[in-house]
């Protein structure tokens, strides 16, 4: 069986049916633009604020872009039973779920580069470590997508997926060092920060844009990759338990 044909066509269908629809394109552009503008104006520091704000805006753009879409592409199709078509196809569950999440990963990655493009226009982004920034963006997109998948599999309604996503997303804005350094959080909250994958991704971006990261890049990348694997495997386990009865 040529699984790559199935993989490619699932991705292509999702891109056409969901991600490349005008509302999503505009959402993918407007949302990061709005965040970037809001923080840039609010900081009042002019061009100097760009490196400090960029990691947080990129992180938040990826997080919301990816997790919002999984509720539609997975929960909606599961509810409408068209997801059964995919489960009946002779492809491995891993391949199937990678195909279903690939669109969200691409969407989240594209979302992240909207504020990067804006920042590049405003400040030129001198001295950015692209070699660390680009893989970090992709890994954040993967981990956020798999978090969205984990949530989408845990619920049965689209609105539940959105609500449950917010339960994770909004605390992550404050706990992952996006706009508030983790060192300034109350001591009892800091351990929670290190249980969230975005913390490590944003730390890599901060290191690539602003200067040295808090943790070593190797440790950040390793932990982020580990989160990706754990969330994906947990999602597969839940699909096996809940959807293949």
């Amino acid at each position: 069986m040529k699984s790559w044909i199935a993989f490619w066509n699932i991705l292509l269908k999702d891109m056409r049916s969901y991600y490349l629809k005008p509302p999503n394109i505009s959402w993918g552009l407007i949302f990061p633009l709005a965040w970037t503008s809001m923080f840039f104006i609010r900081s009042g520091l002019g061009l100097d604020s760009v490196p400090a704000l960029l990691p947080g805006v990129m992180g938040i753009s990826i997080l919301f872009g990816t997790t919002s879409m999984l509720a539609v592409t997975v929960t909606f199709e599961k509810k409408g039973r068209s997801f059964e078509r995919l489960l009946l196809a002779p492809i491995r569950l891993e391949t199937l779920m990678l195909a279903k999440t690939a669109g969200a990963i691409l969407f989240g990655t594209a979302n992240a580069f909207v504020p990067v493009a804006m920042a590049a226009i405003i400040s030129g982004l001198p001295g950015v470590g692209w070699g660390a920034l680009v893989p970090a963006v992709v890994l954040i997109a993967v981990s956020s997508t798999f978090l969205g998948l984990f949530i989408a599999v845990a619920v049965s309604e689209v609105f539940e997926a959105q609500t449950f996503s917010n339960f994770f997303r909004f605390p992550m804005i404050f706990l992952c060092g996006l706009f508030f350094p983790i060192d300034r959080l109350p001591v009892f909250l800091r351990p929670i920060s290190y249980l969230l994958p975005l913390t490590y991704g944003v730390d890599i971006i901060r290191g690539a844009v602003e200067g040295p990261s808090r943790l070593s890049p190797a440790l950040n990348f390793s932990l982020l990759a580990l989160f990706c694997l754990a969330l994906f495997l947990a999602s597969l386990r839940n699909i096996n338990r809940k959807w293949i009865l």
Binding site: M1, K2, I5, W8, G80, R81, R85, A89
Partner: peptide, 21 residues
């Protein structure tokens, strides 16, 4: 349970792709 947003022809082609055609 086919895909409401796809045409009849595209639905068939998509289902074929799931089997590696």
């Amino acid at each position: 349970n086919l895909y409401p947003e796809l045409t009849g022809f595209d639905n068939l082609c998509f289902c074929g792709a799931l089997y590696g055609l």
